[in-house]
Design a protein around this nucleic acid. Sequence first.
RNA 1: CGGGGCGUGGCGCAGCCUGGUAGCGCGCUUGUUUUGGGUACAAGAGGCCCCCGGUUCGAAUCCGGGCGCCCCGACCA
Length: 437
Amino acid sequence: MRLSRSLIPTLKETPAEAQIVSHRLMLRAGLIRQQSAGIYAWLPAGLRVLHNIANIVREEQARAGAQEILMPTIQSAELWRESGRYDAYGPEMLRIRDRHDREMLYGPTNEEMLTAIMRDSVQSYRDLPQMLYQIQWKFRDEVRPRFGVLRGREFFMKDGYSFDLDYEGAVESYRRMMLAYMRTFKRMGVRAVPMRADTGPIGGNLSHEFHILAPTGESGVFYDASFETIELGDDAYDYENRADLDAFFDRMTSLYAATDEKHDEAAWAKVPEDQRREGRGIEVGQIFYFGTKYSQAMNFAVVGPDGARVHPEMGSYGIGVSRLTGAIIEASHDEAGIIWPDAIAPFRASILNLRQGDQVTDALCEQIYDALGRDALYDDRDARAGEKFADADLMGHPWQIIVGPRGAAKSQVELKHRRTGERAELDIEAALAKVRL
RNA sequence: CGGGGCGUGGCGCAGCCUGGUAGCGCGCUUGUUUUGGGUACAAGAGGCCCCCGGUUCGAAUCCGGGCGCCCCGACCA
């Protein structure tokens, strides 16, 4: 993309409403613009990030055997009355009425809807297990939205649901998702730690929240220092091998990790003192087993092998896709701007033409831009070098290909790695080879 | 939802207390200049001063009501 023809409105100064670093940087780098409290428009570069994250989620969900669907954002109140949640949910649910005065709502989650779909479509135990997910906008009317996309009212989320014939199957689905989540976050270039979470009335140990460790996190977290170094999404584990799933689950849950809500002083005391870490975390995912809560309330049953009707065991699995963009920035930035992990950067490289209008540098930049195509953002603005450097650092693409008249005369460019700050004078082929890696 | 703050060109802010129909920096446009880390000079464009009502000869400024946004706390399937 040519920057001169793109809507990537970077800002030199920070809008007053943005307090925390990810919010400031997302506004300044031209990724988003606020439309209402907790509601944001995603501009071209921001949308690329959102898509990149969503696509990693998709690929890992597919690997784990989940099927993608897309359900509506607007739901009927009737559905929620069936489960009893219409009244239980409270003012966080955005309730609306259509022209016929029918009660509707903007979905904060989709357990009811998918359970209803399953009820209409699945009659036999032979059709289970099923694992389905969608990536869709949700709305929760937070009392106090804040921190930009980290705590918005409208948010983009992957929500997945499992349906199994029995508890054993549900546990397997749960472990499968935990593995998928660890792989998903690993691919995004962040460390997310699974932490014991509240299971409510269900009990057991089948709810985990996934937290990215960052000083600005909303939750206080306690964890074993091993989480800072161990392999979190190991490819060696096989989804189709139950023993692998169990081994992985044991590995992830045998080390202590809990949010302050679930912190257990007795268990904490057993962690070797020099291994204890206290910090803050940003919740970017949660997995949850809730048994037959919805299948019973909504009368979803299948006929089992013995002819008896069985309410499927369910679980749900969320990943905050829009929240992840902010969370990743919280975990990966410096004074100059964002430092995108490779896998989710809006562009692989910025091409900085330091002498726009100079035949030699222009030609060299065009050549590089042709070679990289969609992966590159070509800063072809008629602007000062300093401005281009500052914007490139702010936008945080992994590589900067700096083309100035000095090097261009020798067909050389300077390649800067955003994360490490390393610079090298290279010929074009060598630079392209590094960028494409 | 309790407590606090703010709303003035695209962004950051001053002006408000002590009414006399707007100002600064950045950005933007044009020209010159500069040319590897947000250059300098000059000339410009751009404002329903959040909205409605009241007081007054006169309201960005005072008074009343409303709306919006932010911060602390509580809240956060």
